[in-house]
Design a protein around this nucleic acid. Sequence first.
DNA 1: TTGGAATGTCAACAAGGCTGACGTATCTTG
DNA 2: CAAGATACGTCAGCCTTGTTGACATTCCAA
Lengths: 165, 165
Amino acid sequence: MNDVAGGQSLLYLTDEQLRKGIEAMFFAYRGFTADPDRILEDKSYGRAHHRAVHFIHRSPGTTVNNLLSILGVTKQSLNRVLRSLIEDGLVESRVGKEDKRERHLYLTDTGAALERELSDAQRERMRAAYRAAGPQAVAGFRQVLEAMMDVEMRRHYEALKDKTT
Amino acid sequence: MNDVAGGQSLLYLTDEQLRKGIEAMFFAYRGFTADPDRILEDKSYGRAHHRAVHFIHRSPGTTVNNLLSILGVTKQSLNRVLRSLIEDGLVESRVGKEDKRERHLYLTDTGAALERELSDAQRERMRAAYRAAGPQAVAGFRQVLEAMMDVEMRRHYEALKDKTT
DNA sequence: TTGGAATGTCAACAAGGCTGACGTATCTTG
DNA sequence: CAAGATACGTCAGCCTTGTTGACATTCCAA
């Protein structure tokens, strides 16, 4: 029953192994968000602001609609976050040239500075984890995560993946 | 600069690679929680209830304090969730035998049924991802996640890991 | 017997989700 | 050109889940 298929052991698909993976995701995600959360605490911003800033940085000039579908929230929810970022001068919203209904979003220098602070912290943890686990493990890590995404999320992920930045 | 160390390429530690890992975590976590969230939608419970039910299932008889430190929330926050679960007859709270100040938490049959429904859904996605990625990748996945945890979270994770259940 | 630990609970608040409804430009298409 | 669709913003109100602070109870242990 717990035997082989094409010489490949299936022991890694037992409920027990899957459960460990689930708990690993839960505990690791806490670590994943811990450092940015700590930084944001002081600044009257939250994780939602971090996400917005991150993806605007990744895709400068992105439209509100595009950001909406990446983040998977309602426009009202995003708008609240964007408004405060724009008011505080971290994000700039420019009317579209081709289509004047669209707003294109850019980080200001201040916004870029915050982005850097947050992503430095997050990357630092990621780097330590990568280093500890090694390149082989990292490849597997990414494979499993990609297989875990919903189709639409994977679309967004792939689209970002290829940007030279 | 992007060269070798002990014959090992360090290309996997570039900012670009780390960024991909960060975004993979973000998008994958959405998939990770999507199925249970959908199930809970109807039932007037949320993710917080799922977490409580999961860990009570994993450690029957656990105390409130222990659960608190696993979940990393305040007792007031947890209490609100536990209260509704107890009122609805999904969780039973027994006064401790040794120390009567402690409450030991158990799932009722109804609670166990919900837990099963939720974890079946979550495991299904995990199983598909594992199968798609293969055992090698899964091992790496777990290694990186474990390296990403905070020390205290890893403690909890390890403690749960060894339970035969 | 007294201090502290474990638990519960009340009140108030904030972030960040959500729905619904409406307004206003601006495109697009018949 | 008129009508409909699209992109965006905004107001109002609701929910979940997190937070602090304060206080009561119960009980262990020194």
